[in-house]
Simulated assay, not measured.
Amino acid sequence: MAVIDQINERWGRGTVRSAVVPVNPDWTMRREIMSQSFTTNLDHLWKVACK
């Protein structure tokens, strides 16, 4: 925390801060495209071909 305080003191308040997710973020995960068994069934994963 001392290093973060030093950086913010030098470059301005809020330049560096702890990583946190707000209680009610403006963004949400798009769960409608997530597989129902995303950790157990590899056949449900999307396949991408690069040519």
Rank of each mutant, 00 (worst) to 15 (best):
E9S: 12
T15G: 01
T28D: 07
K51G: 14
T40D: 14
W46P: 04
K51N: 14
R31Q: 13
E9Y: 06
D43W: 01
N41P: 01
M34E: 09
I4A: 12
V23Q: 12
K51H: 13
G12F: 08
Q6T: 07
V16L: 13
R13E: 14
V20K: 11
S35T: 07
D26N: 07
V20G: 01
M1A: 09
T28P: 00
A2Y: 05
D26E: 08
R30T: 03
S37V: 06
A19C: 07
L42Q: 10
T40R: 11
T28Q: 12
R10W: 08
D5R: 05
K51P: 12
S18Y: 02
S35N: 13
K47Q: 15
W11G: 00
V3R: 07
Q6C: 02
R31F: 04
T39M: 11
K51M: 09
H44K: 09
N8F: 03
A19H: 05
M29Y: 08
F38C: 06
S18A: 05
G12K: 11
I4T: 06
E32C: 04
V16M: 08
F38W: 15
T15V: 06
P22E: 15
M34V: 10
Q36C: 04
M34T: 04
M1H: 07
V16F: 04
N24Y: 10
V3P: 00
G14E: 03
T28S: 14
E9C: 02
L42M: 07
